[in-house]
Amino acid sequence: MKIIKAISEQLIIKELAQAEFEQAYPLVHQLRQALPLTDFLSVTAQMQGYRAFVLMDSDKADKIVAYAGFAEQLNLYEGRHIFVYELVTDEVVRSQGYGKMLLSALTEEGKRLGCEMLVLTSGLQRVDAHRFYENNGLTKTSFVFRKEL
């Protein structure tokens, strides 16, 4: 694990190496409940540029309390941007500012990389998450449409 930012003596944001992703799986599973560990490890290893930041709390036995999976991307409509695939705080410690701290670290990383935007998608049913994103400076700009093949 590489330290990204020490927020306090108690709270540290670290970047996981691919070999360490399994440590974060219990938290990722809270968000992606249908995703087995083997698929999580296999798919993230294949994703172009996938990275993971975690927020660890030493008061909770160095437990990972928040997780962000993301990648730097480039496309025609967002330009160079950080795309956040997962942003999840442990359900037992939500609303304590952990997600905000991790989102701030992602914003700083995007700026460091020369990105113009931070982008994520969120399911329509996740009303509390939408409120969190809007309270932290993100705006709703589109819908995502899908079709099974």
Rank of each mutant, 00 (worst) to 15 (best):
K147Y: 00
I13E: 06
V92A: 14
V65I: 12
G97W: 04
Q46V: 02
V28P: 08
G69C: 06
D57I: 05
I12F: 08
S122W: 05
D57N: 13
V144I: 15
L55Q: 05
G123C: 00
Q96G: 00
E116D: 09
L35F: 10
I82K: 00
L124Q: 13
E134A: 12
V28K: 08
P36R: 10
V119D: 05
A19C: 06
E148T: 13
V65Y: 03
V127S: 11
G114D: 10
V88A: 04
R32Y: 10
L113K: 13
L31V: 10
S8M: 08
S58G: 01
F21N: 10
Q46C: 07
V54G: 02
G137R: 13
S8G: 07
K100P: 07
R131A: 12
N75I: 03
E72D: 06
H81A: 07
A45G: 13
I64C: 07
E148G: 09
S104F: 04
Q48F: 05
M101Q: 10
L87A: 05
A34V: 07
A24S: 15
E15Q: 14
L124H: 12
T44L: 15
S58K: 14
T141Y: 06
A6N: 15
M47K: 13
Q18A: 11
K100F: 07
G123M: 07
F40Q: 09
Y25T: 03
A52K: 05
V84H: 01
S42Q: 14
K2P: 01
M1N: 14
F145Q: 10
L16G: 06
A61Q: 15
L149N: 05
T38S: 08
A105R: 04
F70M: 00
S104G: 09
